[in-house]
Design a protein around this nucleic acid. Sequence first.
DNA 1: CCCAAAATGGAATATACGTTCTGCTTACGG
DNA 2: CCGTAAGCAGAACGTATATTCCATTTTGGG
Lengths: 274, 274
Amino acid sequence: MPTDGIPAPRNLAEFEERLRRVGGTLPKRLKQCAEYVAANPDKIAFATVADIAARAQVPASALMRFCQEMGFSGYSQMQKLYREEYSQKWPDYTTRLASLRNGGGETPSGLLAEFSEAGRSSIENLARSVDPELLRKAVTVLAGARTIHIVGLRRTFPVASYLAYAFEKMSIPAILHSGVGNLTQHHMLGEGDALIAITFAPYTADTVALAEAAAQRGVEIVAITDLPTSPLAALDALHLLVSEIDVGNFRVLAATMTLAMTLSVAVGARRRLL
Amino acid sequence: MPTDGIPAPRNLAEFEERLRRVGGTLPKRLKQCAEYVAANPDKIAFATVADIAARAQVPASALMRFCQEMGFSGYSQMQKLYREEYSQKWPDYTTRLASLRNGGGETPSGLLAEFSEAGRSSIENLARSVDPELLRKAVTVLAGARTIHIVGLRRTFPVASYLAYAFEKMSIPAILHSGVGNLTQHHMLGEGDALIAITFAPYTADTVALAEAAAQRGVEIVAITDLPTSPLAALDALHLLVSEIDVGNFRVLAATMTLAMTLSVAVGARRRLL
DNA sequence: CCCAAAATGGAATATACGTTCTGCTTACGG
DNA sequence: CCGTAAGCAGAACGTATATTCCATTTTGGG
């Protein structure tokens, strides 16, 4: 416990402020600690006490005293601060919503709040995780295609139908493979076409089958999927990964829709330039 | 040590590539590990074995076997890979989004940033603006309906199809009025049914027509729309208002999808209690 | 249907790490 | 120049964590 009544800093900014204020008044070794910590915030998140201490050229115990002097219970608590800052926390909805679901006694507006939060962070995560280069390539492929085929069944069908609508509006030739009437339309896939395949675990067989047929016919494939282990991985498709949250068996589609929208508008813009 | 001669991956990309190749052939528990790891790379950098294992719903030993199967000596070595990757990214992760945004609407990732922002604020706005009491009433109406009819055409069709999928999965009798084949299905609307009508300005005539037919037959209506002045206002429907942002002529459907999801899950929960 | 091989879960073990304690050194005031 | 208090380093400790081992279950082939 801290000998003096100084409380632990709540966030990084508060801590750095404190560092700045008291930094000058510390004894030699502790000042070394302060300087190293201030100069290498990124290292703190990962490294161990011994590691940091060695780099700052102080014994481990000095670093411990430093942490306690700053109001933390110890090194671990200080490190937690840095880790939180580092990975902006994306709360664990899978477990949270599971309990909520079992509890059952939730009000509709409570649910709305939960789903809003889930959708919001899904979208934020999407913006952070999508590889810009991959996205650019996907747009290039689609913009160069003669006809864009779209397949997404069951829970991804809303996304597929959205893409179809968007392309139609921009007068870009696109075909939505909806599976209506159980018609297979493999023969429509031709050289120079591209396919957008959307599928999440458990992967719909028909979607995978269509993608495989497309690959055989030399159709380029852009896959919107959740994991790099999806069956589409076997084909050499461009993989745009979206990690989204399931509630029960329902996928929050907010991020996927956002990605679909981006794709369609970007393709539209690129086509107009050609 | 790795029992087979597979060498440890040198970097994250190489590892993810390996995940993709062998991911499908792994036994159940190990596949669970593979999927969790692939979907939550950010967690790996910080969390402990026990932590990750719990989240992936496997015993710790399974996770260890997974790491070794992938060529690592153990969990620690795998974690090191993720930490290295992350410490490279760190300095600019905060500035990345900003630069994406400033990069402007020309590049695909610039667009993604814009749409993400649009979706995010639409959802936030939704959570604030929807009247809880109205939402509760809508759920009550839908939960009490014999059959739920759903209509949403053109750009709202993705939402309508999403609702249809959700209800079907929960074995709640629902009919999606898709307009396929230009068939009108007004005669299916009967006493004790309810209709979810989704339409935004400019209001699709067929949607409004169906809603009017429904009103005449004593079907209760839940309207998802953008303005209180919509044509559906004339009928005494419950109006759930969603103000969403248009980018170009494309409506970001993130908020509407979120609302749809809330409705379906809430109705499902309520029905189960009845 | 049975047997062998693979997979699995949990307990047991080893290790790494944070934290504390103690004896020694340095700085400072009288 | 001495005495006291603060600073310090390294060893010692206990805990948290990774890793291994083994008994049991499951899977797949003959």
